[in-house]
Amino acid sequence: MPPRIVEVREGVLKKNDLLARELRERFRHAEVTVVSLVSSPGAGKTTFLERTLRELKAHSRVAALVGDLATDNDARRLAQDGVAVRQIVTGTVCHLEAQMVGEALAGWDLPALDYLFIENVGNLVCPASYDLGEDLRTVLLSVTEGEDKPLKYPTIFNSADLALITKTDMAEAAGFDRAAALHNIHEVRPGLEILEVSARTGAGMARWLERLAAPMPARA
């Protein structure tokens, strides 16, 4: 008798998706807005997050989780008065998963927070596959990286809700072709919202903070 075919039709990452859904539910109950940041290494996630935390903490209660393969340098950099920061050291794992986020939240009083930021491991490939329960996923592209990055990594741009062009203060020095970058983002993901920021000069930060305060449409 030949082998029998048994239908399954289940997502391979179903466990992660279920955990992410539970997290999303927890965040909603706690009324905390959760924003994740993904980018290649060196796009300026940590500097941008540092500035965001500094500006937000004047009127909001904020915390951050930062993922890295090794070292807790980023968490130490981000630690400021009144901001809780926890490092997730992933070891050899190149991305964050919902379970790691859940474990890192142990003991935190979520309802006491307005915003929680999750900085993913610097990687434009792997984080795309894993839902973390966030309300807003932002993908960062710095002006020093080359305008064709969206074409090389269409999947991450398709998993994000917002694209941030960072380090705009360096655009001229880097010979950044802004029109090409915007065009390429929309070639792989038509309609994706794009903001342009410089964590160094503060340009664009006001619009970013406005965006964070606006209601977030339901994700996934």
Binding site: M1, P3, R4, I5, V6, E7, V8, R9, E10, G11, V12, L13, S129, N158, H186, R189, P190, G191
Partner: peptide, 20 residues
């Protein structure tokens, strides 16, 4: 331009072939 994706993100175990 087509913002609405209807397929292409699948990572799904569709079926198993098993010996009865």
């Amino acid at each position: 331009p087509t913002p609405e994706l209807t397929g292409g993100r699948e990572l799904e175990l569709r079926a198993l072939e098993v010996w009865e």
